[in-house]
Design a protein around this nucleic acid. Sequence first.
DNA 1: CATTTTTCAATCAAAAACAATCATAAATAA
DNA 2: TTATTTATGATTGTTTTTGATTGAAAAATG
Lengths: 250, 250
Amino acid sequence: MLTPERHRKIIEQLGEKQVVTIQELVEATSSSESTIRRDLSQLQKEKKLKRVHGGASLLHQKSEELSVIEKSAKNSPEKERIAQFAGDLVVEGDCIYIDAGTTTLKMIPYLKDKDITVVTNAISHLDLLTEYEIKTYLIGGLVKPKTKALVGSGALNSLRTYRFDKVFLGINGIHLDAGFTTPDPEEAAVKQLAISLSQKTFVLADHTKFNEASFSKVAELNEAIIITNEIDEDAAYDFQDKTDIRVVTP
Amino acid sequence: MLTPERHRKIIEQLGEKQVVTIQELVEATSSSESTIRRDLSQLQKEKKLKRVHGGASLLHQKSEELSVIEKSAKNSPEKERIAQFAGDLVVEGDCIYIDAGTTTLKMIPYLKDKDITVVTNAISHLDLLTEYEIKTYLIGGLVKPKTKALVGSGALNSLRTYRFDKVFLGINGIHLDAGFTTPDPEEAAVKQLAISLSQKTFVLADHTKFNEASFSKVAELNEAIIITNEIDEDAAYDFQDKTDIRVVTP
DNA sequence: CATTTTTCAATCAAAAACAATCATAAATAA
DNA sequence: TTATTTATGATTGTTTTTGATTGAAAAATG
């Protein structure tokens, strides 16, 4: 049997079974153990598989791929600092809700090694959460195709069964009159309910969100503490009586 | 045999078999090894094929560019056929539950363009489901880190709010006495409840699952219809009165 | 934890496949 | 026709691949 054919067969078997023994491959290709070993070495060098004692296994792109996940979130040092600040607020034993969103996603690395329970409506957060071995509950509901967030009455009912020490929300607009707002009414409803189930609510928002308003109201300004990266003096003055703002200094 | 005819034959054989040995070509064209070598060198220069030690291979060795998502699942033609059969059972307007598992995952492409509603406990299914624009509800619950499936009381409560026309389950063991079984009690509970919420239940299981039993019982044999790829005569005889088996013929 | 078994990498000789060369046979041109 | 080119097949020495063997390393076992 020719080399490329053997290689193809090896990869194929791996695809079916996740792991294969050398013996299986010897039989499948009717070649010697030595040859298979050489094949495996070569395929490993080509990153097609991973050799393990006794055979080979599919390489599950884990840590490598995960860094991609982290990176895929819009990368900005401002959001990173906000996320870190928020993450550091979480203490041992907390039950927290983490909303869908890029900034909230970036909190997760800062939760590492804390013994906490996380509830979320963000499917996209799960890879990181499980990677860091954080006990995670997902609420149920309709999967919103674009953002992969859970919404709808199912989500609300599911969410209602939990209580939180802290809730961390992303938000699109922070406005003196309109309060906290976000474009999608369905998501707004979920955020609203989360707030009502928590002792404390934190809104993670960079400075571009101030004095903006979108379609659906989530809450009044005084219902949450805002974590942001900077705020100009005028805005600081305007908002100071209405809400509580923590500015993350670099 | 004339040169162009030989070349045509070589390309033809390659198209059929992905790889050919020089010996095969020598026989097929009844020309000498030297000639074939020259042919291969030339065809390689013309980018018609790739020479390999012992023969030649197709340039685009069909490494099957499945969407990355599909690729990650265990690949086997048997499971594929089972999945297709199951997928074809779903009709317009159905509300179905799709269990976590590799075979059930492979059903999804066969649901394309059907106007249906899917409920699942499998986070890993969501990428494909949303890709095919299928209306999808996820049940809530604890995220089981290893399999990324949703389990626990939250999952059960969430699941209980739905009713299904058809339920499709993966299962680990099908046994005359033990019934349908699976290793994890938490997952078993979810499957159990799903069955009770549905008009019809289908179990997707290849032939290796017969006469196996795992830790947790999911249901009696008569509670579901089994879709499998093959079954030996003894097993067919044993099971025939106890349950309904559909064998997918290739 | 010592012993046994399995698996591994390294080595080597045999086999297979290779490129290069050459002489012959066929095709083409003079 | 003869000369010349071209394709072919056989031959040669070289390179690559292969499978068996070995002692070392790693798992499994008691």
